[in-house]
C-alpha cells in the first residue's frame, strides 16, 4: 500500500493566473509521456520483473505519483482565478464546457488518456528500454514547456521535474546493466 504525505515533493509556485499555460501543462498530466502514464507504466511492470530491479522500478513509479501531484497543483493554481471568458480565450472553452475548472486526464490537444500510451512486454530489458525512452521523452516535453513560459516560479518547478527525468533515465540505464551482468554471469556457469 502507499502512505500519503501531506506535502508536495518540491514547492509549486506560480506568479500569475495563466490558463493558456495550464492548457499546455496538462500534457504532462494526461498525455502519452506524462506523469500518470509514467507512474502506471512502472507500477504495472514491477510485478513480473526480476528481483534485482523491482526496487528501482517500484520507487521511481512511486516518485512519479508525487510528480503527478505537482503538475496537478500547477494546473490548479494557474486556472483557479480564471473567468469563463479567460478560459475561453486560452483555448480551454471545450474543457470548461465539460469540466468547469476540474482537472481531467487528457493531453494538451484534449485527447483523453489511454492505457495504450505504455506497454508491458514481459521481457525485462525490453520493458526497461521503454522506460528509458519514456524518461527522455518526458524530459524533452518539460523543456518545450519551459520554453513557453516567462513565469520564473513556474519555470523553477518545471526545471525540477525535468531534472528528475534525467536521474530516472540514468537509474533505468543502470538497471539494464544489472540485468545484462546477471545474464552474462548465468552463461558462464
Amino acid at each position: 500500500m502507499w502512505v500519503y504525505e501531506k506535502k508536495l515533493q518540491y514547492p509549486v509556485r506560480v506568479n500569475k493566473c495563466d490558463p493558456r499555460m495550464a492548457k499546455f501543462l496538462i500534457e504532462q498530466y494526461g498525455g502519452a509521456d506524462g506523469e500518470l502514464a509514467a507512474a502506471l507504466r512502472y507500477l504495472n511492470q514491477r510485478y513480473t520483473l526480476p528481483d534485482r530491479v523491482i526496487g528501482i522500478v517500484n520507487d521511481i513509479g512511486t516518485e512519479e505519483l508525487a510528480h503527478l501531484e505537482m503538475i496537478a497543483t500547477m494546473v490548479y493554481k494557474l486556472t483557479k482565478d480564471a473567468t469563463a471568458e479567460q478560459m475561453k480565450e486560452a483555448g480551454l472553452g471545450p474543457h470548461y464546457a465539460d469540466h468547469d475548472k476540474a482537472l481531467y486526464f487528457h493531453n494538451a490537444a484534449g485527447v483523453p488518456f489511454t492505457a495504450t500510451y505504455f506497454n508491458a512486454k514481459g521481457d525485462p530489458i525490453t520493458d526497461l528500454y521503454e522506460d528509458i525512452a519514456a524518461e527522455e521523452k518526458a524530459r524533452a516535453t518539460y523543456q518545450w514547456l519551459i520554453n513557453m513560459t516567462d513565469d520564473p516560479d513556474l519555470k523553477d518547478g518545471l526545471q525540477f521535474l525535468r531534472e528528475r527525468e534525467v536521474v530516472h533515465s540514468q537509474r533505468f540505464r543502470e538497471a539494464v546493466e544489472i540485468l545484462k551482468e546477471e545474464r552474462d554471469a548465468k552463461r558462464l556457469f
Binding site: Q9, Y10, P11, I56, D59, E174, A175
Partner: peptide, 18 residues
C-alpha cells in the same frame, strides 16, 4: 522538510542500483 526528504528520495533511488 522538502529539502531533507529530497535527499532521501535521491539516495533511495541511487541505493536501489548501488
Amino acid at each position: 522538510i522538502q529539502a531533507v526528504d529530497f535527499v532521501l528520495v535521491e539516495l533511495n533511488l541511487y541505493l536501489d542500483t548501488h
